[in-house]
């Protein structure tokens, strides 16, 4: 067993895991964060997408030992202190970007990463950012619309904040 220290959703976490444990195993197991899903386990479906040091990566192909000392953001970490959903999460609900929900955490994290680096994406930018996330329910149209809705809401909130 090995002892690891990593920062997950802004909180320092200390875990003792098997040497070959994956980040996904640590999140869903000892840290009790089941929002991140395991789909293919092969890096293909993107259901396990989390942000490591700001980069969207597949938690299923990331050994936990590789993220020692790094910051990890999961879908649970997007929720505000009062339990409020983030703009991206709300947009997925309002825009109908969720059906069965299994791919949703990964989709949300990919969209969150996109909007952090590009607050005003085109529909093509959104589609490109989601090329590593598979959905078997929705046909993607409402997911792309939800992402664009999230971008608009975030911009409006920021502009409103500037005025206030």
């Amino acid at each position: 067993m090995i002892d690891l220290e990593l920062t997950v959703n802004g909180e320092l976490a200390r875990v003792r895991v098997e040497p070959g444990a994956r980040l996904l195993d640590v999140l869903r197991g000892p840290l009790g964060l089941p929002g991140t899903k395991e789909g293919c386990g092969n890096g293909e479906c993107g259901a396990c997408t989390v942000l490591v040091a700001g980069r969207p990566v597949c938690a299923c192909l990331t050994p936990a030992a590789e993220v020692e000392g790094l910051e990890v953001l999961t879908v649970e970490g997007l929720v505000g202190p009062g339990g409020d959903l983030s703009a991206v999460q709300r947009a997925f609900v309002e825009g109908g970007g969720v059906q069965c929900g299994f791919c949703t955490p990964g989709m949300v994290m990919s969209v969150h990463a996109l909007l952090e680096r590009n607050p005003d994406p085109t529909p093509e930018d959104v589609r490109e950012a989601l090329t590593g996330n598979l959905c078997r329910c929705t046909g993607y149209a409402q997911i792309v619309e939800s992402a664009l809705l999230a971008a608009r809401k975030r911009r409006e909130a920021r502009e409103g904040g500037d005025r206030a």
């Binding site: 890096g43 293909e44 993107g46 997408t49 980069r55 969207p56 990566v57 597949c58 192909l61 990331t62 990919s110 490109e128 950012a129 090329t131 590593g132």
Partner: peptide, 9 residues
């Protein structure tokens, strides 16, 4: 190569 996530890994 592959997908946005894989290119960042």
């Amino acid at each position: 190569v592959a997908s946005p996530q894989i290119r960042r890994m």
